Simulated scan of single mutants.
Amino acid sequence: MIVGVPKEIKTREYRVGMVPAGVRALTSAGHTVLVETNAGVGSGIPDSEYQRVGAQLIASADEVWKRAEMIVKVKEPIAPEYERIQPGQIIYTYFHLAGVDPELTKTLVKKKAAAVAYETLQLDDGSLPLLKPMSEVAGKMAIQVGAASLEKAHGGKGILLGGVPGVRRGRVTIIGGGVVGLCAAKVAVGMGAEVTILDVNLERLTYLDDVFLGRVSVLASDTESIATSVREADLVVGAVLIPGGKAPKLVSEALISEMTPGAVVVDVAVDQGGCIETCKPTTHDNPTFVVHGVVHYCVANMPGAVPQTSTYALTNTTRPYSRKIADLGLVEAVKADRALARAMNTYNGHVTYEAVAKDLGYDYRPILDALSGK
């Protein structure tokens, strides 16, 4: 198979879809890997490292997309890339189709492209192995960027999360106790903040209470507990996930208006539409905006700011599946691996992930039916 690795073009997106070890795994098995010139530079990987393991360096993104049977990326294609998508092409990346430009799904369906989405590749135990490493990064970053946004110079109320003796600590509310919430809490506790985690899963709350040995407050998530915790918080982190679907709006604009001026919200779920009503996607160039006096940090590709960590963490998990697709071909790989089958969001002109179809108004076609032409 011919595999293409184009350079990411989203604002300040420095990650790359494949590292040299991944290229070697494919070239040693007889596959061809096309890497766009300077694709890895932002992650500290020079072109010479790709050449050393057998990649062909390609000067233009257009040629990479045109020649490749499978494209391996980090972020979903954006508008300038829509025309580059080839009919029937396999695209293996994060898509978050329910939360991004609906024109992307329309283009994928029209071109009968196979969208293999990192965020919905799900094991039988319910875990999301390709989402987990970036959730870990984003969760830890949420507290870093939140703490910086709380500084007066950045529009915040001027609170130090850890406080000092004789002065109260900053209050952090984390909505969602999954991977993002857990990692955010680790950093917030480490900084000395007063931390509350809300989740609907009582077993998860028991686990979190055990992990933190009582150093965080764990609350069952409902309308009242969210309202109370958000009003009192200096920093709110939205960490809610519905695999493949839009995040539920758990924090209303009315509730945001009741927060104290200079408080901060960081919505990690913004790439799936966000769980805070006032949030909208921002970029690393202009990461924040203010609504009702509250600073909103809503960058949709937060891990792109720390690419040397993020790229290697991500590609450690994506590599085995790209190799399986290349070795077996997409159809046989999907038939052989239920996790890959769940990763299929579009195929041959159909939307094959139920939550995406529901949120975007498409007919849902189960992937095995789509593969068989039923």
Results as ranks from 00 to 15, higher is better:
Asp271Ser: 04
Thr278Asn: 05
Val294Ser: 03
Val291Glu: 11
Asp267Met: 01
Glu258Phe: 08
Leu235Gly: 04
Cys279Tyr: 02
Lys249Leu: 12
Thr282Leu: 09
Val294Glu: 05
Ala220Ser: 12
Lys280Thr: 14
Val236Trp: 01
Ile276Asp: 12
Val268Trp: 00
Gly273His: 01
Ala254Ser: 15
Val216Lys: 05
Ala247Tyr: 01
Val236Gly: 01
Lys249Gly: 05
Pro243Gly: 10
Thr282Arg: 04
Pro261Cys: 04
Ser221Lys: 14
Gln272Val: 07
Arg231Asp: 06
Met302Asp: 00
Pro248Asp: 13
Glu253Trp: 08
Ser252Trp: 03
Gly245Lys: 05
Val236Lys: 03
Cys298Pro: 02
Asp285Phe: 09
Ala227His: 11
Ala227Phe: 06
Ala263Pro: 09
Ser225Gly: 03
Val240Asn: 04
Glu224Gln: 14
Ala220Leu: 13
Val240Asp: 10
Ala263Ile: 12
Ser257Lys: 15
Glu224Ser: 14
Thr288Val: 10
Thr283Lys: 02
Val290Leu: 07
Glu277Ser: 10
Cys275Asp: 01
Ala239Trp: 00
Leu235Thr: 09
Cys275Met: 09
Val270Ile: 15
Val291Phe: 06
Glu277Tyr: 11
Val299Phe: 00
Met259His: 12
Ala239Gln: 04
Gln272Phe: 04
Val230Phe: 01
Gln272Asp: 11
Val270Thr: 05
Ala263Ser: 15
Gly238Val: 04
Ile226Ala: 09
Met259Gln: 13
Ala300Tyr: 00
Tyr297His: 14
Leu219Trp: 05
His296Met: 08
